[in-house]
Design a protein around this nucleic acid. Structure first.
Lengths: 131, 131, 131, 131
DNA sequence: GTGGTCTAGACCACT
DNA sequence: GTGGTCTAGACCACC
């Protein structure tokens, strides 16, 4: 599993790990049930503290993305998709999107340019245009 | 000027002020050259610390959105519409959009649903579909 | 806020803090909106590491029991009672109760003795017998 | 002997075995003096590590629930019903019950609802209402 | 002042 | 071997 950590970033390191793991699952690089590197392995590979990796893994487990088995390791969860699709999180997401669009507008980005971005990135995660 | 502050939000209060001022400019509620409330007035109205408002105004001035005239007050800059479109901010924006899409994917949102959101929100800020 | 920590306990220290804070809220000792000791204060009072207190507070915030305001401190949340009353947690609770009853039975406790326990403890938390 | 192991559970696997064996004795499914599967048989049946089963059996033997006869196998102890009712375990049990009630209270469960639960589950294990 | 993050290094329980 | 907990001590952003 290859992750890229930016040291001086605004995002905490553990958050970068969280996001990139989710990203790789979304892209299909990491498969359900697959074992991911141990805390010690990943911390050694990324040159960061084991506690930091551990915090990221725990956050991911809390989100239902990973499951850890004591003494065995950490695995990608079977994505029993959230049944009710928590409305709260959805609303928050929509608000963040709104904020982003305001920012884009303010930076002078045109509507079509922004939608091109959405198209391009969507390809990486949903793949098929008509999914 | 009416702003809505969420006390327990993830965003720092000063960031909420920054974003909402920019939002209102983007929406045309605040006009270029218009005078905005003083630090003391706004801090009193929002029941927040004057230092926090001050920090927000300084950030907005740094971004070229506001301009402070000593003894006169603080005004929306004439050049509120960013001319050069700073590449750095654009890249950051694109990364945030990517993160949002990953999140949406993890929540089980379909591609078309997400694009519907983009359409809906875009209408509020760019108005014309072909802008 | 007075908490009692057992050092060699099976429960992690941070879990003891979590439980006792919830206990005191349930008993009405801690009121909604009330400020609780800062991480540093509590860690000093309990002779434990600030990180341990911080972990407990973060867990409580995740559970919606506390809210932290940056630079201000940590407060008892307004208990906007979970609307759907998460079924999952309820099921888990019922299972734990079953386990407890099995244990009690195995230890030779009689049914009436166990129910006496439930009565006694209930008084501390629900107060009124007919609540 | 049929046991159900949850792989990602909070309880250690060996603890799950311990509890379920005790549960089955309490329910009368396993009789005193009865032979139970060997470590190898059970570990094969449950697809878990033999060491884990061994640890569970040792714990059960320590508690006086099982008795191992070298070369013959492992059996339910004649004195499976605890005679002296160890005070230590009782205190712990009471504390766990307290924690459960605090949790129930926080989830918004009413006192009568909780007591209904106790009634229902008690029926399964003590059977007679006046036992 | 507040909480949040990170490091270094120790110990423990589980498999 | 695995992850989980705890300590000590540092630095940062926010108010």
């Amino acid at each position: 599993m290859i992750l890229h950590i930016q040291d001086g970033s605004l995002l905490p390191i553990y958050e970068q790990v969280v996001q990139q793991v989710k990203e790789q699952i979304a892209k299909g690089i990491l498969q359900e049930g697959e074992r991911i590197p141990s805390v010690r392995e990943l911390s050694a590979a990324l040159l960061i503290n084991p506690n930091t990796v551990s915090k990221a893994y725990q956050e991911l487990e809390r989100q239902g993305v990973l499951i850890t088995k004591r003494g065995k390791g950490t695995f990608i969860a079977q994505t029993a998709r959230a049944p009710g699709m928590e409305k709260e999180r959805m609303d928050q997401l929509r608000m963040e999107l709104k904020r982003l669009i305001v920012e884009a507008r303010h930076l002078g980005l045109s509507r079509s340019q922004f939608q091109d971005w959405v198209e391009e990135i969507s390809l990486d995660y949903w793949g098929n245009k008509h999914a």
